[in-house]
Nucleic acid binder design. Structure first.
Lengths: 342, 342
DNA sequence: TTGTAAGCGTTATCAC
DNA sequence: GTGATAACGCTTACAA
């Protein structure tokens, strides 16, 4: 029994206004084919009856779901830790909302879950397009989606990782450059970095950029990879503080690790920024809530979300999108960085 | 080898296996009406052809979308600030995933946007059920949904706010009690609270509980309402520190404000926990990343998300859910609280 | 300008 | 056990 929810259909509206269902459809969709008079009457009656199009029926007939898909990697701790994701989500769905689109969210729990979900979306037509995040090097999803040009996709990653898919990228290399020159100008010559997982695309991009620019600037550079958690950030910081000679500045790949690094330094009696300068990537409230305030490489993540939504909708509408660059990082100098003590 | 579009329909499968489309449907849905032999053959061919059910068609025929709706309030800063939301989202969608459900997310941008979205979902049948968060006092959505029993809904709020709707509630009053007794036992007699927006249901619940228990314990209590941001948390902290006599303990309604409060105190030369004890509500990585570690009232938010999903799916399946209480808060004593100096 | 009817892909109700 | 066939609600040729 196809459960009917006693909903108002266009047939009800048609009957009530004494016209055919197609006339109602034309009227409601603002399409030609009905007189203005009829249209007005139909619209009136539709509103009166509280008619709304059934989503499934519309999706079936038009092959358009008005949904954009996003797969999150399952790691509650990490997700929560990174305000990045929530900010992106905000911008994304706020912009989608303006276009009457919704966001369909699924969580990739296992190893191959992400690609399975995307395959499912392609086969079942559950979304009109999707956003690809957190690409890994040689990410299989890129190949999959290149084989399915009928599914619009926007990758948020460095162009070198997206194999020619439409891409919204950030200038991480430029930001690395900016950050290192800043520290170099302050007089730092021994800089360490607490990075994210090596497999993640943007870690990789930054790795390369850091190596190059530090070599260029004659800076001694040391990099430790972590899993982004505060614990691993603390661990890495302890290790770095035990080195001799100790680095005079540490830059963290996210703000949580920067915060916990600050805690470790403070707890160990290493004064910040007197004896140690700290910098964070991905500026957030944490950087300004911490004491001392943490210098950070920030950007407009909410804005990126909006932009991603716009580009994706353009693709859904059949438009072309190549490789777009989002608004650049800014260096937000705060109290956690200073010239190193002689 | 990957098939083209989702153009594979049950008719294709039917043709390829030499049976009718209804036989295919029965076979694929594990329903009786088809011999085991035929079933096996059909399943084989369906897999071979890469058949997947079209979501829209299935939704139309079964009046089931396999989607759960969630409306977020639009405030990117706040959303990002509260790791609560992201943790909840994680648990929620991880559990939904296990049941082959997805989360449909929309953002309420204007004043009446939330109720408009919910009305839309009810009328268009875009979701099988929805979760109601951040209830305000006398929230109009409660009335709306009580008038639409065909739309399963679970409210995450205090039962006193949900008007009899199925509810998953936390024992905030109990937690308030626990927190205040802890501070009282340490010897605190002047306690302040930096709370969230007054209109929010759980602020209200806590307000009442705090007033009652402090009166009972003979504690001088002062409460300031904020908008949850680190800035307002800092502001409130400054004000409280300027009082004479100064409170000996401050408890914050979220961890961001606690962190920024800690920064303010440290910056003002007020030692924590020596001269001032700090406590936070909603424990997160921030509390353990901060120095000193912040004592907090924590709970298993991811677990609550999972539980909410389970309850909601039970409702969707026609089950009954009354008022369920989630796992209780825990007092996680850390370094930011101590006995007040004489 | 209108109405009729054929899809869209599945599920469910029938006869056979 | 099997296969036509009618829903499901909407869009859109194609007739009238």
């Amino acid at each position: 029994m196809p459960a009917q929810k006693s909903k108002v259909t266009i047939f009800d509206v048609a009957k009530a206004s004494g016209v055919s269902s197609s006339a109602v459809s034309y009227a409601l969709n603002g399409k030609p084919g009905v007189s203005e008079e009829t249209r007005a009457k139909v619209l009136d009656i539709a509103r009166e009856l509280g008619w709304k199009p059934n989503g499934a029926a519309q999706a079936l007939a038009k092959a358009r779901t008005r949904r954009i898909g996003l797969v999150l990697g399952y790691d509650p701790k990490l997700l929560a830790v990174e305000s990045y994701m929530m900010e992106l989500l905000s911008g994304l769905s706020a912009e989608l909302e303006r276009h009457d689109y919704a966001l369909l969210l699924r969580m990739a729990v296992g190893r191959d879950a992400k690609i399975a979900i995307i395959k499912d979306w392609i086969a079942t037509g559950s979304v009109d397009g999707l956003l690809l995040l957190n690409l890994e090097i040689g990410d299989p999803n890129v190949e999959l989606l290149k084989g399915h040009p009928e599914m619009p996709v926007l990758a948020l990653a460095d162009p070198s990782l997206t194999g020619g898919l439409p891409t919204l990228s950030s200038d991480d290399a430029g930001a690395v450059d900016m950050a290192m020159r800043y520290l170099a100008e302050l007089g730092h010559t021994r800089v360490a970095r607490v990075a994210g997982p090596e497999a993640l695309g943007h870690s990789y991009i930054r790795d390369a950029a850091f190596s190059q620019i530090t070599a260029e600037l004659g800076i001694t550079y040391r990099c430790l990879h972590t899993d982004y958690t505060p614990e691993s950030g603390a661990e890495a910081t302890k290790l770095l503080l035990s080195l001799t000679p100790r680095p005079t500045a540490i830059i963290y790949d996210n703000d949580v690790m920067a915060l916990s690094g600050l805690g470790v330094a403070t707890g160990a009696g290493v004064s910040v920024p007197g004896e140690l300068s700290l910098m964070s990537w991905d500026d957030s409230f944490m950087c300004t809530a911490a004491y001392p305030n943490i210098t950070a490489m920030g950007r407009d993540v909410v804005g990126s979300g909006r932009q991603a939504a716009q580009l994706l909708l353009k693709l859904v509408d059949g438009g072309e999108v190549g490789c777009v660059e989002e608004s650049p990082y800014q260096l937000r100098a705060r109290a956690s960085t200073a010239a190193p003590q002689a």
